[in-house]
Design a protein around this nucleic acid. Structure first.
Lengths: 398, 398
DNA sequence: GTATTTTGTTTAGCGTCGGCACAAAGTCAG
DNA sequence: CTGACTTTGTGCCGACGCTAAACAAAATAC
């Protein structure tokens, strides 16, 4: 009864992204018959990826026989996700549905040598796998740098003190092999930029769900990154270097940037710029984002803070308007400090973008704060889950 | 023997884009068996879309039995394509493969009233259909304006003296119905921006063939337009308004633009700007492009012309570099005056773009002149062909 | 309690494609 | 010229993945 092979992947993706709570929805979303949907669900259940709750559901209103409900299997396999950031790393086991099963962080570690940090992070992941006894189907890594394809090199890990061009994917794969992660015997490890992966996670499980063309802009501690999801797929360009939005000019008379230009988004709309505009002395590099976000959340009544926020919103709005003119997305999600900015004053940024973009006057694009904790980490997991979503049958051979 | 239904569309697309000269290539490109490829080719031939030449080909070198060759059927059905521009319109019948079968132009007409111009153009198309006796499977229209989805309104037909927001798609459909185009009984008419459609045509049949992420930039008589083809599909954004590149800032101290900013690409890198920089008095609006291009081609030795060209290349290069940082395309194609610019000095523009883009230092993106005559027209035809390429069986019901 | 609606399951059947065998049409070596 | 080899085209069969249709199950509506 090997029914429903071709629809297996799309079906799992629907359950994974929370868009198929029942077999009935699966039927209509996939455009297949009930028979096929049932067979697909049965096979996914047999593969240990989803569970079916056929108890007499606490029916809600509508007529007819109530649907059995479909869940991602809470005890199913996981993938290993790791994120490197300015002040340490974070590792997690992530199940289908973007659910974080277990997590550890190594904060305070200065990640000077990439190989060393990756080995440490992967070792923590291996420990989590041993503790939980979960089966591991892959691994993904998020780094705060552009990652060049096809070799997976970190081109500008400026805030990590890594050498430019560090071959992070190769190092990550090496670390996975050395740690003897069970199930990851082959080269099943993926690496991407943290903002890109955060955007992917938001699109699948967060504020970006349902958007067709999703633009994300986010600050780290220093600088500004962007990402674009088109038709459910990350657009990272032909060499993985798309959406380098940090060097859009937003203030022609602004501060000089290391790129040689002046008034780039990178130096005009990041946490350091905000703290300077608000007249505060910045703390250590690895805490700038939290310092700025806390200031914004706690002291928004302070006129100086308010003025600094307004200035940043103007600059950011100009940059985003330029992106809107080029990309015409149907939703925009902001992360990092920009998330705090849009939460502090949702209307002002929308108005600036609508005013500065060419066709924004009639409505404008929805601009939302990101909605997931650790979205880069979840996005790294998405990368690792992708082969399974493309063809769920690969799980039998791992 | 109804074999090869699912692969029918991809197969026709391969022949259409000239990437499947033989059944053998079809087999490998589609990833199917020879049996399936043969059945697919037979069915496409039965549909009257392709022809198979099974004569003993003037074999070229390699061993084994020579392949029969596949051609687009020269006498097969066509689509009607129309293009409206500043100084008139052009109409053509376009077959598969982007081949223009018959064409007329109505130059000198000032297209003041959109309904009138479209009716006239479509009437010419109907006449061509009668003369040639071809079967018509659809119609496409290219206009020099952003076209808003989902209603198909021309938002900024600045150079046509049309009212902003003119419902061009509806008017086009009305004109098709009124002309009684045989085979276009239903609403099978498509409308798009001319630069977008030109990019689509270049990607399928011209200098963009084989590119994955293709960026096009082109000037008309006034202003600059852009277009992006991703994975073979035109990216026109969620509302059809993507790639409005004319208002990228390329000269902070530059001339004021009607958008309210200064130094936009629109006013710094179009034919008018070039003529001004070269110290020539511009002719009538509808001839600026030809005047500028002729000047560039014939008087490039003139120091003033040379200096004006260098200035324009610098400005254009800065704008393109910004796009490269955001989109990371693997090829760039230039049209209009910019085509003449890159033909005059291919190396300079490449160098400017590489220097001003973040990761361009290691090589840079290939920048090519467009290679098709009337690429917007051919692109409009592509729009009309798309339903047939998606499912060739639709031809039996038209 | 019966009719209606919606969902899940079983069975039969069909269409599409892969695998295989064989034929056809060329090159290459002698 | 002949035979071995290589590559392409085609006919046949079976497997796989789906639809269609009938039936069963579980709720609401009257």
């Amino acid at each position: 009864m090997e029914r429903g092979r071709g629809a297996l992947g799309p079906a799992l993706e629907l359950v994974h992204t929370g868009r198929a709570p029942t077999r009935a929805v699966l039927t209509s979303e996939l455009g297949v018959t009930r028979a096929t949907a049932g067979a697909v669900a049965a096979e996914l259940e047999a593969l240990g990826l989803i569970t079916v709750d056929s108890r007499p559901t606490a029916s809600a209103g509508s007529q007819g026989r109530p649907s059995h409900r479909l869940f991602v299997d809470e005890h199913g396999p996981v993938v290993l996700a790791a994120q490197i950031h300015a002040d340490g790393y974070r590792v997690a086991l992530v199940g289908l549905g973007g659910r974080i099963v277990a997590t550890t962080s190594g904060c305070g570690t200065i990640p000077a040598d990439p190989a060393h940090v990756l080995a440490e992070a992967v070792a923590e992941g291996a420990a989590l796998l041993r503790e939980t006894g979960r089966r591991c189907l892959g691994a993904g890594l998020a780094v705060p740098s552009a990652v060049a394809e096809p070799d997976g090199e970190a081109l500008n890990p400026l805030h990590l003190a890594w050498p430019a061009g560090a071959p992070v994917r190769a190092l990550f794969l090496r670390a996975l092999a050395d740690a003897g992660i069970p199930g990851v015997t082959e080269a099943i490890g993926f690496t991407g930029n943290d903002v890109n992966l955060g955007a992917l996670a938001e699109h699948r499980h967060g504020a970006g769900r349902g958007a067709r063309d999703l633009l994300c802009v986010a600050s780290g501690h220093r600088g500004v990154g962007g990402a674009l999801v088109l038709d459910g797929r990350l657009h990272s360009g032909s060499s993985g270097l798309a959406l380098e939005v940090g060097h859009l000019t937003v203030n022609p008379e602004g501060a000089p940037c290391h790129c040689g230009s002046r008034g780039c988004l990178d130096v005009e709309a990041d946490p350091l710029a905000f703290l300077a505009a608000a007249g505060r002395t910045p703390g250590p590099e690895g805490s700038l984002l939290h310092q700025a976000a806390d200031l914004l959340r706690n002291d928004y009544a302070d006129p100086g803070v308010r003025a600094a926020a307004d200035l940043l919103i103007d600059r950011l709005g100009l940059g985003i308007a330029g992106l809107v003119n080029i990309l015409n997305p149907d939703r925009i999600i902001l992360g990092g400090l920009h998330r705090a900015l849009v939460e502090a004053d949702p209307e002002r940024l929308r108005a600036v973008v609508a005013d500065r973009s060419l066709w924004g006057r009639s409505g404008g694009v929805p601009i939302l704060p990101c909605s997931l904790d650790h979205n880069s980490l979840v996005g790294a997991a998405e990368l690792a889950w992708q082969p399974v979503l493309d063809d769920p049958l690969v799980v039998v051979e791992r």
